[in-house]
């Protein structure tokens, strides 16, 4: 009798152990079935090799990057509360503590550094000493990009969906919203809280209208002149809800653009026709954020990869 009870108990223990083991093994991550509802954009990531125009030649690790720019042979990099000036080789020339949460940085040809914050701007000299400080532009402002034409500063405000025009002493002159009263020109549409602008060598002001997937050229007084760009997941267009995210100019006026979603960096002719691919999606594995772009005097392309926390230099093949 005792032996029977013992056998039953042992069998019961073995059965429980088997159930626990099976349960444990069957819910292991590598044993779980594939997602039948997998969302995939993999088919749009490969790029025809003949389109690739650049190769990556350098990487510089950086801490908590927020924004960067290139001027006079140096990189100006913003992080949480510091401004770093570094050489193209990564040697630090200046590290200056600044106000918390900067958003974008620009350096003019004379070396004056302008930094935007959520709703105000600060101008520094080349040593990082404060020269000017603007008033709060608007309590709902989010100043995400800067550009200069002559003595005029253009500031993209993603919060107000408008562009502010200031002088170099950071005094507000006027603003515009890209609206004209015509039904098909309805101002800046910004599904994401990012708004980018830049001025090219010809002093033309170009602004992203990312909800429309277009880059638009405005007169310096805010009148729309022309635009280009098409929404598309294929390599020729801009994908997602709000691309292009960043852009910059090569010296001859061609555009370098970067996108989020399917992260890719491309070069477009002035006409808006795709010319080549600088960095395909394969160069940003598991990436989430569009890289910021700067172009140096040699037309080499610098990307600030926020996911890898790295400056990445691309040169023509």
């Amino acid at each position: 009798m005792n032996r029977t009870i013992q056998i039953v108990l042992i069998l019961a223990i073995l059965a429980i152990a088997a159930v626990v083991l099976y349960d444990s093994l069957s819910t292991r991550i590598d044993k779980r079935p594939d997602n039948p509802y997998q969302f995939s954009v993999e088919e749009f990531k490969p790029v025809d090799e003949s389109l690739l125009s650049h190769r990556e030649v350098r990487q510089i690790e950086v801490d908590n990057p927020v924004a960067f720019t290139w001027q006079n042979g140096k990189l100006f990099l913003l992080s949480g509360n510091s401004l770093q000036v570094i050489t193209p080789e990564g040697r630090e020339l200046l590290n200056k503590r600044i106000d918390f949460n900067p958003r974008s940085v620009l350096v003019d040809k004379h070396g004056q550094i302008i930094i935007s914050y959520e709703n105000y701007l600060v101008a520094l000299d080349s040593e990082g000493n404060e020269l000017y400080r603007s008033e709060m532009l608007d309590e709902n402002s989010l100043l995400t990009s800067l550009a200069i034409s002559g003595e005029t500063l253009f500031v993209a405000d993603a919060g107000k969906r408008q562009v502010w025009i200031l002088n170099m002493e950071l005094e507000t002159i006027e603003s515009f919203r890209g609206e004209s009263g015509v039904s098909d020109v309805h101002g800046f549409i910004l599904p994401s809280l990012h708004f980018h602008l830049a001025v090219n060598e010809e002093d033309e002001l170009w602004i992203t209208n990312s909800g429309m997937h277009r880059i638009q050229n405005y007169s310096l007084t805010g009148r729309l002149r022309r635009d280009w760009g098409e929404p598309s997941f294929s390599i020729e267009g801009f994908s997602g809800c709000c691309n292009p995210y960043y852009f910059a100019f090569l010296s001859d006026g061609r555009f370098v653009t970067s996108e989020k979603g399917i992260i890719r960096v491309k070069i477009y002719r002035e006409s808006g026709e795709l010319e080549s691919v600088v960095a395909p999606a394969a160069m940003f594995p598991n990436g989430e954020k569009a890289p910021a772009i700067a172009v140096d005097e040699n037309d080499h392309i610098w990307l600030l990869d926020f996911d890898k926390k790295m400056l990445r230099l691309f040169r023509p093949v």
Partner: peptide, 28 residues
Amino acid sequence: CGYCDLCGGYLKPGHISRDTAAENMLCP
């Protein structure tokens, strides 16, 4: 929500057109 025309949650990647046709929808 950005109330986007090209909505990544509504339209299938590679959709033919931005409308309500079933072949363009991402949702199964």
